[in-house]
Design a protein around this nucleic acid. Structure first.
Lengths: 330, 330
DNA sequence: TTGAAAACTGATATCGGTTTCACTCGATAG
DNA sequence: CTATCGAGTGAAACCGATATCAGTTTTCAA
């Protein structure tokens, strides 16, 4: 059923129908007629046809590397909350950690004529830069800091520095680093830099053999823990780039008789909900994921109102959350 | 830039441009011209205009009660995996646990002319039934069983029965029930029925004072645990409708010197990832969330190919996962 | 050499809406 | 009594694409 057919049923003109659904001038009489006809036939105007003419989609594309991750879904929730209030819908695109799909998704979103894009970026290649700078619609990047683009990010360096320092100040002498994908600037590089800076500031020379890179999950953390603890001397503290990785390490320690925090301290990043109920409650660094999502959305909204050529970078701070896993007396 | 303008730039006709983007008959010469012009101008055809004409959106609406939940995001991941392969995009709509928004979202999706809808339903009212039966596009409901509609669901009753029986067979005499929203048929009602059936099959009369209803999160589980353990006699086992709730109970027990499983056994449902690394590793029942999402998507695809009038209900089975929290010698 | 099929072409109608525009009508002001 | 104004109206143009169709060119087997 299209607008012409429906107009006939209702006994009014096309124009009247259009006005009904867009609050234009319309007599009470016709308004009633249309309302009744709509009730009876279930007619709803086609969003696509409208968009062809009006060019507003009230749709924002959100590109994310995976769906089932606590941090990502918190960010998304923040985005959804803010944009939902303004009447926007989200077109979520899951790249499943395939960085090429980030590019093709941007292309897709241009076709769909979305009003704006929020990109939960991971890596940043030259191709990213070139495609992103060609986008004619507002784009906000959340979770990473890319010069020349609108970003909302965390202080990953500071968070890693603080957590590592905490453990060093409790007397750790052989700190191990269990990091994430080094192509990922925020979670991979910045957190590693923070770790290393803390070591040098505390006069400790990093031991290359106490460094491993894990995937973003518990099982991978467990596997890498095996490697770390096979070294001699064993690490007496492990800084993990994420809480999930840390959970894997904690499991390994419990299964292998390593006492936390006496034998080894463990620190994570992200303050995931499970942290306080883990085998050993985990010290971590709270990053304001949901807030980041909300600010990303707000930034997009302001960009939508008035597309400025000045790019803004908003960095959110962190909060240390101390629990049992680093609770060693000094 | 629209197709006519672009055609002029490329020096070909509109038709040729359309054929280029739809693999129609086109000489190599024009193909090259268009390719170059597209490269230069960055032109991409408008999805909306195309859809007005072709009526295929390659878009599936997914309505879900929240984003940041492990079970829900696993389901969504399954959906995304199957539909993505077939070239569909997902329009995710987050109702934020507002059941009225489930209705208005269905309306919205009709406007957007999506090809189909997957509904991660919670409650089921008369309004739901009436709106759902008026949808002219395929709808699949995941996670709940609603007679007269296409569903993929879990055996919630069986899962609850099995977990409760496990604890009773280990000698529990005063079982407590910590359930979820009773308006939610699957997680609320069915899991409660399973619990109660297990009790009656084991000759135990339920104690009304050992029943509480929690929200779907850890903190709520913790709060309700306070109430349960203030009773006399204290429960010697707690069946929790979800793992998150169970995690809250475990935390309470640890903080209050209740030994698990000696003083009290705890069982959950969902087999969430954190289960095996909790303060006390949690016995739970694995529900195949991702698989449910995948089957929901497959069901939708088959419905899309040929909209049958026979509705199908697919119920997935469960697997008991025993861990420390019920590890009592018989 | 011929005839039919396949490849290719572009003008035009169409999809389902919104916006414009010229016009009617009744109320109110001067 | 008339001029003015704003609400209300529907025909027609328009948005940006695809589908149709009538026609031309190329290919290739008989």
């Amino acid at each position: 059923m299209n607008i012409s057919e429906f107009a006939k049923v209702a006994g009014v003109s096309k124009s009247a129908v259009s006005r009904y659904f867009n609050n234009g001038y319309l007599s009470e009489d016709k308004r009633r007629k249309i309302e009744q006809a709509a009730e009876k036939t279930g007619y709803v105007p086609s969003y696509n046809a409208r968009t062809v003419r009006t060019k507003v989609t009230k749709l924002v594309g959100v590109i994310l590397p995976k769906l089932s991750s606590e941090s990502i879904s918190r960010v998304t929730e923040g985005i959804s909350e803010v944009l939902g209030k303004e009447g926007f819908e989200l077109l979520l695109i899951n790249t499943a950690n395939d960085y090429n799909r980030e590019i093709s998704s941007l292309e897709l979103l241009r076709q769909k004529r979305v009003d704006g894009v929020i990109l939960l970026a991971s890596v940043f290649t030259d191709l990213h830069r070139s495609v992103l700078s060609k986008m004619r619609i507002p784009v906000v990047i959340v979770g990473q800091q890319f010069k020349g683009f609108n970003c909302v990010c965390h202080n990953d360096f500071g968070a890693a520095y603080a957590m590592t320092s905490l453990m060093l100040e409790k007397g750790a002498q052989h700190p191990a680093f269990l990091g994430a994908n080094p192509d990922d600037k925020a979670a991979g590089q910045d957190r590693r830099s923070g770790f290393e800076k803390a070591l040098s500031d505390h006069g400790i020379t990093p031991d290359k053999s106490l460094v491993e890179i894990a995937k973003f999950n518990m099982d991978s953390g467990y596997e890498k823990a095996k490697l770390l603890f096979s070294h001699n001397p064993k690490p007496d503290c492990v800084f993990c780039a994420t809480d999930n990785i840390a959970a894997g390490v904690i499991l390994y320690c419990h299964e292998n008789g390593l006492k936390i925090p006496e034998d080894v301290m463990i620190g994570g990043i992200g303050d995931s909900r499970m942290g306080k109920v883990l085998l050993t409650p985990l010290s971590s660094v709270h990053l304001h994921y949901k807030t980041a999502g909300m600010w990303g959305a707000k930034m997009l909204l302001s960009e939508l109102k008035e597309q400025g050529d000045v790019h803004r970078i908003l960095q959110l701070e962190y909060d240390i959350v101390e629990r049992e896993s680093t609770n060693r007396k000094i």
